[in-house]
């Protein structure tokens, strides 16, 4: 299993696209940090704004970069790993070795989950450094209390919790992407299907908007508003998508 993970990880980094995506994503994070710190105000949602400072900055930076992460940086690698290799016939080579199909899928999921964690670590690092460099400690205690109440960010631990909850959303997106990649025969359609499903969920239910508006949804969860419904919706998507993908992957002829 570990060898499969290493093989998957090395194959992922052998693609030039992975390195280019990571570098571009880091550049986007720096640009977004410059932009945010210039105005000194972050939006929890369309109607609520809080003053930015060194300790809450990384959370608001993730909210700003979340579109690029969820729509470009993560799905490109998801689709390449889950559909691209199948379409190209690369699995034939991988499965020449005596590994089970389930183990291959698990290795893919672990490698992609680490990739998402890397993207989030980049934003966190940029957010912490930019916050410390360009912003103060938040000024008056009353302002900090107001920000904590509106955004649910009372300490750096809450900022880490923000990243943790967002990570779960990105992992759920990976499950959804696996399912879509198994249902449609082309990489273009799988990618478009994933983005289309994000948008479609906005129309299905307000509680499923976290894929497209994840930054806003996590603020809501951390401020104690609708955390139970969020957990149920996210959990359902994860169980259904990962479960169905696992069954289909094991049964289907892959190459």
């Amino acid at each position: 299993m570990f060898e499969l993970f290493v093989s998957e990880w090395e194959r992922m980094w052998a693609r030039k696209k992975t390195v280019v995506t990571l570098v571009l994503f880091a550049a986007v994070s720096v640009l977004a940090a410059m932009w945010l710190s210039r105005f000194g105000v972050g939006f929890v949602n369309a109607g609520t704004e809080v003053r930015l400072d060194a300790w809450n900055f990384p959370a608001f930076l993730l909210k700003e970069t979340s579109f690029v992460l969820m729509l470009v940086a993560a799905p490109m690698l998801f689709v390449d790993a889950l559909a691209g290799e199948r379409v190209q016939g690369a699995y034939r080579m991988v499965l020449l070795r005596p590994h089970g199909r389930g183990a291959l899928l698990l290795a893919k999921w672990v490698a992609l989950a680490v990739w998402v964690a890397m993207l989030l670590a980049v934003v966190l690092a940029v957010g912490v450094i930019a916050g410390q460099t360009w912003l103060g400690d938040g000024g008056a205690l009353t302002e900090r209390a107001a920000a904590a109440s509106a955004a649910g960010l009372a300490s750096f631990g809450d900022v880490l919790a923000y990243y943790g909850v967002f990570y779960l959303i990105a992992v759920a997106a990976m499950g959804l992407c696996t399912l879509i990649c198994l249902l449609v025969p082309s990489t273009v359609l799988a990618y478009a299907g994933l983005v289309g499903s994000y948008v479609g969920m906005l129309y299905v239910s307000e509680h499923l908007r976290f894929f497209l508006l994840g930054g806003e949804a996590v603020f809501q969860v951390l401020s104690g508003n609708g955390a139970g419904v969020f957990a149920m919706a996210l959990g359902s998507v994860m169980v259904l998508s990962f479960g169905a993908s696992w069954v289909m992957w094991k049964k289907r002829e892959l190459c």
Partner: peptide, 16 residues
Amino acid sequence: AQTATAAVGMGIGWLL
């Protein structure tokens, strides 16, 4: 674009 996924990714990036 070098691959179809890169083409879609770049397109969506341009839209953003």
